[in-house]
Amino acid sequence: MINPFAPIGRGVLGVLAEIGRFTAFAARAAASCFAPPVFAGQLLRQCMAIGYYSLPVIGLTAVFIGAALALNIYVGGARFNAESFVPNIVVLGITRELGPVLAGLMLAGRVSAGIAAEIGTMRVTEQLDAMTTLSTDPFKFLIAPRVMAATITLPLLVVVADIIGVMGGYLVAVNSLDFNGATYLRNTFDFLENQDVILGLVKAAVFGFIIAAMGAYQGYNSSGGALGVGRATTNAVVGSIVLILALNYLITAFFVE
């Protein structure tokens, strides 16, 4: 007799096994960041590729989100005469939630996919094996610099996103909603607390690590030619996004408690 629960059980075990494999891989990647040798040139190159070249997309995302947020809060606030809270809620929403999460999601699409495709192609063309035969550990040469770069640069990108996002809200509030510019900025800075910024930066560092580790994990374990690399790229983006959203809740809950 066919057990109807067997496929569900197999699926759950498969997911748990995958979580275990990714955790072991991420732990090895993290350990590689602290073990010599450190390839400083590679780290610098990755900081440029992951951080600097992501600035335009992060900036554009932040300005539009800040502007839209100001409009929505104004409309919502008007229902109970709370329009004046626009600067307070914009800065809170951007620094604690939207800045790190949206920057993380944008980087999941841009960086995690790129890392998975690059390392996946190296896997299927035997470049990773070649590196090992050349007495160089791919974890130290390829994966550690990417993980370190993403962990360092995403918080910096989030600082930029926070500033641009607040400015997006400011521009809409001043130009379309008749707010006084000086009052808007004073309310923003008076309301902002250190822990709001710290929470956003902690989230960003965790998301940066997850994005690079997931891309590297999927690429490193890819097989089956172009199809396998394509699958690794898709899995890297989906996996990163799911983990970012889940960890966003857990980190927020931890800080709130």
């Binding site: 192609t121 190296m122 063309t125 035997e126 470049q127 094996d129 070649a130 050349l134 160089t136």
Partner: peptide, 23 residues
Amino acid sequence: FQGGALFDSLSVWENIAFRLLYA
């Protein structure tokens, strides 16, 4: 290696000298 397995992101001399440079 069968397909050469040269690193796309490096120049030919950096590929050849990879072990000298990094190991």
